[in-house]
């Protein structure tokens, strides 16, 4: 026989009160992030939206704020994103496949794993110094798109390796077993079964890594990306600038008009990043819908 009291004990009431307090505290914490984002968006939209027109998108650097645009920076960003993925993806995915599928469990692979995890935590400016010394000076590639994309490729390599490994790990062993039992080789099993089954997770990792690369400023400043550029790069050996650097440059100008340019540039950069993140979310959603274990 249970007894239901109308008035709960003091202890019970205290716990219920505690529950409520924590709920609202957690809600406030969630809202802080959103509030800051909203403030930021409001700020840049009010300052920069009026500057965002075809002229702005289609002009290069200029000493006069009203003539300056982001064409060179946008083309530079596209080039950098393209070549960075060209270098980082094959190497990163192959390395992840090796570590996850081929490498046994021993001291050497353990050593590799720990160091890749460490690399993911190295500050990006250090990668810039590495790129400056190795690619720019020793290999004499100067401050070209090639140097920039090689440097950023190194930067996102550990991220791609780690996220690809997680995606490969999520493929159940029974799937591999079924493939081996039919006489498939290891590579056939990876190529026909494991990679397609994990492609959603791999893509998500790639796109998040790429949006990180697109937003990087420090390593590119270190390797000597230019800030004032009248030309649009059209070869991999050309000097270049990217959106974050262009924005950084405009903000450091004393004239107020450049602040509007910077805000407009931020809007474009945010749009690109949101777009990439949107693609990542969509791919993950499709992957989860398509494949049920």
């Amino acid at each position: 026989m249970i007894t239901l009291k109308n008035r709960p004990s003091d202890k019970t009431r205290f716990y219920q009160w505690q529950d409520k307090v924590f709920k609202y505290f957690a809600l406030c914490c969630t809202l802080i992030g959103l509030f800051v984002l909203a403030l930021l968006l409001y700020n840049i939209l009010s300052v920069g939206l009026h500057r965002l027109d075809w002229n702005f998108l289609n002009s290069t650097s200029s000493q006069r704020a009203s003539n300056a645009g982001i064409k060179s920076a946008m083309v530079g960003t596209v080039y950098i994103a393209l070549y960075t993925s060209l270098f980082a993806l094959p190497i990163g995915i192959s390395a992840a496949i090796y570590l996850e599928e081929y490498a046994g469990k021993n001291k050497f692979t353990n050593f590799l794993e720990v160091n890749i995890a460490n690399l993911a935590g190295v500050p990006s400016v250090i990668y810039g110094l590495l790129g400056l010394e190795v690619f720019s000076r020793i290999m004499m590639l100067k401050n070209s798109i090639l140097t920039g994309s090689l440097t950023l490729a190194l930067l996102i390599l550990p991220i791609i390796i780690v996220s690809t490994r997680e995606a490969l790990k999520s493929v159940p062993y029974s799937l591999r077993e079924a493939s081996y039992a039919l006489g498939a080789s290891k590579w056939q099993t990876i190529w026909h079964q494991v990679l397609p089954a994990s492609s959603g997770g791999i893509f998500t990792g790639i796109i998040l890594a790429l949006s990180r690369a697109i937003g990087e400023t420090a390593p590119l400043i270190v390797i000597g990306a230019v800030v004032f550029i009248k030309t649009v790069p059209n070869s991999i050996m050309d000097k270049f600038t990217v959106l974050p650097i262009q924005i950084f440059h405009w903000i450091s100008q004393p004239q107020k008009a450049f602040a509007a340019n910077a805000a407009a540039g931020i809007i474009v950069l945010l749009l690109i990043t949101f777009l990439l993140n949107g693609i990542a979310v969509y791919l993950r959603y499709r992957w989860q819908k398509k494949i049920k274990w």
């Binding site: 029974s174 077993e177 006489g183 089954a197």
Partner: peptide, 15 residues
Amino acid sequence: RKSIGMVFQKPNPFP
């Protein structure tokens, strides 16, 4: 493995 087929405990069709 081609000449000796196997069926597993839990159905494991490819996705």
